[in-house]
């Protein structure tokens, strides 16, 4: 008999407590720094080492580069097929210059599959958006750019 009353006591004790529901989509969640959303890419830092394409478990990265006037490799095309990307972030782990990173864009749904094939411009745009949203988290580009440039 008393089992019911104890249970009822628990229910009533919940009444004055604060609600934990997040009213999405009116309120968006705040993601931590390490959150793995769709990628963001900084073309100036990429050295076309191809490590990200090799480590990807689903082979969704394809890239190509060419040598510029200083005989250094510069990236020309960089595509991520986010249709098959599993957001494991192994590519960000192996990148030696941190050119490819994860952002916190998580709303990736699209009506057309072609929109999911992200090219370098979209990814760089994503990087600019990310820096705009999180000015305190952007990597100090100037020093790294200098080192990669010389």
């Amino acid at each position: 008999m008393f089992g019911f009353l104890k249970g009822l006591g628990v229910t009533i004790s919940q009444l004055p407590k604060k609600k934990v529901t997040l009213m999405y989509p009116d309120e968006k969640p705040e993601w931590p720094e390490r959150f793995r959303g769709v990628h963001r890419f900084i073309p100036e830092l990429c050295t076309v080492c191809n490590q990200c394409a090799r480590i990807c478990p689903t082979s969704c990265i394809s890239l190509s580069g060419a040598r510029d006037e200083n005989r250094k490799l510069r990236i020309e095309t960089y595509d991520i097929n986010s249709d098959i990307c599993i957001l494991c972030s192994l590519c960000t782990e192996v990148c030696p210059t941190e050119a490819i990173l994860m952002s916190d864009t998580f709303e990736n749904a699209s009506y057309v599959r072609d929109d999911l094939y992200l090219d370098m411009h979209w990814l760089y745009n994503n990087e600019l958006e990310y820096e705009r949203r999180h000015p305190d988290r952007a990597i100090p580009e100037t020093d790294v750019q200098k080192k990669a440039g010389d």
Binding site: V20, P32, R34, R36, L87, C88
Partner: peptide, 21 residues
């Protein structure tokens, strides 16, 4: 509710809520 707290902690730790890698 409790599981959300655990998963949020894991989110801070490794960046994902379920597929931690």
């Amino acid at each position: 509710e409790e599981r959300e707290k655990i998963i949020d902690m894991f989110n801070e730790l490794c960046g994902a809520r379920i597929t931690f890698n």
